[in-house]
Design a protein around this nucleic acid. Structure first.
Lengths: 397, 397
DNA sequence: ACATTATGTTGCACTACGCAACAAATAAAA
DNA sequence: TTTTATTTGTTGCGTAGTGCAACATAATGT
């Protein structure tokens, strides 16, 4: 309700405007002071002051005017500005069932380091899992970046509230755990720590990390062995009460055969491969051979894919009725099946829909680097550039 | 993404702080200057200046210090402030299939006038429907309020984008209509006009109008002949791309009998009454007699109610998987059935849920005055007290 | 009656922004 | 080539809003 909130000290105004300037620079990449002023709705002189402040802080730098040719203006060319990439770094961790993944991004939101390590999630208790993950992350962080690490994000397959209290993490066997506090305690330095559901982290990574601010509702699906989902509204993650918003995989589907299965059990990699192994003549049936078989119209594979397309259509329709998304982005390895089956999925959607409900735009995620760990890091990047972070900074002293 | 945005002129700060003060006064009802300062995070002196400004504008007034006894402070008692109720008025219209309803609220968000008129929606074209509705609204508005009417909201059973462009309104037979512009043209004076889906309007009315700012996700259901739904997140309406978010009534349900029916056709008043009339021995079977029959455990009625409870549980589970609500509020006449069937609904939810997903809190809406028309008016009240309105005011001159 | 506590008000300092003017640098026109 | 037009970045000044500290005010508790 208090969307904006009051603005206390004049210095707070400057801080907010500096953050707004940095957000604009993040989104647009490179801007001159004048362009920045226009985007922010400020006077050129104010823009200049703000940039001056950010420059002495080392957060923004001028970039050689060499490459501003495309702007065919008819006046003095502006000095392009950009975020100084190595002014701040953010760590993202994914604690999965089989792996721990670490990603380090810089202020430009580019990946500068990443690492993956096998991990047997269910057999490890929380404390050691967190300490292993955090120490792996800070081992990956180069010593020269230590002092400029401005946040740590942890993505976990769990439901949790906004304060990082995990209610339950079925795949890891965790229950009622204050993961955020646990992680904070394991971190060597003082820095913001956030915890997020892995599917949500993926969603924010695919959205925020790609610098795209689709104003509307986007449903991100991650289809691996399980099926997760996240919702992004106008560039902001919509968590839901327990971080489970968009978890389309747990939708109930009373399909043709057994009643009351979860959608995940039909859409997931496991289900596809099980059915495919039963009918395949390939020596080593796997997802890749399945995809080629579908492409080659091998009847058994096509039938499996058809079932998959029907289930996906069903899930998208149900989700569409409730969150009214105008865009769907498919990720995960199984997403590669979609381009082959797009026509069938759309056909099923149309035949199941009652009336002229608008179809969401359906895309597949191209950038393979995005994942929950990257998204978790993005969450802290976003927070660093948001006014809430400033609020907390005020509370501290 | 640009959640806050830059703050341009110093005078803009004052405006924002004045709005924040008014929001606080709306939420808390009565506050002293010092309390206001604490809530807003401002200095007492600033609070005093802001209040002074609002007082000369007539938006805020001091209320006799008679009634501040409960605050057992040990110092000088504060002078209580409140929004001047008749400083501004807002009109809300619901264009339904059978009625046109008009509600007028004041700055305190209290209903000061309302009116209802029969209407045969499908037989009337849009232009005349809008002009009839708008003139009914401005007839209801007392002449002395004319100059202080600060907004008009229109609730319609339709899907529309954020700018008031209706894609389709099946029940009224409208298609591709710029309803917001149409309404703006019909309004005698210049004022903000908003259009919203009726279920969404109901939801914001039940949430915002009740001054409750449940921080979390609430799903509002309106169960009449049709079933609509709206989602409110942290006190703000979540529309979705086409204003259809929360439209649980259109969920597909392949129930025990016919496959692929919409949930609405099972949960709605029509379905209940049709089934009830077929088995009832009452002379005039209607919803009231049905409810008493259910209370008296008349087997046929209980069976119908049981089916209803199952369908409701199914819908809530499906919706819960996608928006992850922590609260559900049931409205509309059929909601009266819920208290009788609460245990069964919860039972079904538990039996259909796979694991320990947290159950949302389920309530029935008590305040009978809230409805789409009231909610539409609330939408403009909210807008009047929001920073966006100020933005637009800046754009105008 | 006195101390204590909290409120509302006032004068002063600080700071951020807008405005206008100016120098700089480029493109288009003469 | 020179001139004009256009856009950019900078600087000095005025405006305005907030914070701070001090003070008068009005209650409670001893």
């Amino acid at each position: 309700m208090n969307e904006v909130g009051p603005i206390a000290p004049p210095s707070g105004i400057r801080q907010r405007n500096e953050l707004a300037a940095m957000r604009a620079l993040y989104r647009h990449g490179r801007l001159s002071r004048a362009e920045l002023a226009r985007i922010l709705g400020l006077n050129r002189s104010s823009s200049g002051h703000i940039v001056a402040g950010l420059t002495v802080e080392g957060l923004v730098r001028e970039v050689g005017t060499a490459e501003q040719a495309p702007t065919s203006h008819a006046g003095r060319p502006g000095i392009m500005l950009e975020l100084t990439p190595d002014a701040a770094f953010f760590l993202g961790i994914e604690i999965g069932v089989e792996h721990i993944t670490v990603v380090e991004i810089d202020l430009a939101c580019r990946i500068v380091n990443n690492r993956m390590e096998p991990f047997d999630g269910p057999s490890v208790d929380v404390e050691t899992a967190v300490s292993r993950a955090v120490s792996l992350a800070f081992d990956t962080l180069p010593p020269s970046h230590r002092g400029r690490c401005e946040g740590l994000g942890v993505a976990v397959p769990a439901q949790m509230d906004r304060k990082g209290l995990i209610n339950i993490a079925p795949l890891l066997g965790w229950r009622n755990i204050q993961l955020a506090d646990l992680a904070r305690a394991a971190v060597p330095a003082q820095m913001p720590v956030m915890v997020e559901n892995d599917a949500n982290a993926f969603a924010i990574g695919a959205s925020y990390g790609a610098r795209e601010v689709h104003s509307g509702v986007t449903l991100y699906l991650v289809m691996e062995s399980g099926v997760g989902g996240g919702i992004v509204v106008d560039g902001t993650l919509f968590r839901g009460a327990q971080g489970l918003a968009g978890e389309i995989g747990h939708l109930r589907v009373n399909g043709s055969d057994a009643p009351d299965r979860s959608l995940e059990s039909v859409l997931g990699l496991e289900c596809i491969l099980r059915a495919y192994r039963a009918i395949s003549t390939q020596p080593d049936p796997n997802l890749a051979t399945f995809l080629t078989d579908v492409r080659d119209r091998v009847p058994g594979a096509v039938a499996i894919a058809e079932e998959w397309a029907r289930a996906l259509a069903y899930g998208l329709i149900q989700a569409g009725r409730i969150i009214d998304a105008d865009r769907v982005v498919l990720g995960g390895s199984v997403a590669a099946l979609y381009p082959l089956m797009a026509a069938r999925v759309l056909h099923h959607i149309r035949s199941m829909q009652e009336e002229s409900f608008p179809l969401p735009m359906i895309q597949t995620n191209k950038d393979e680097t995005v994942g929950p760990a990257f998204g978790a890091a993005c969450l802290l990047h976003q927070r660093y550039l948001s006014a809430d972070a400033a609020r907390l900074a005020e509370d501290a002293p």
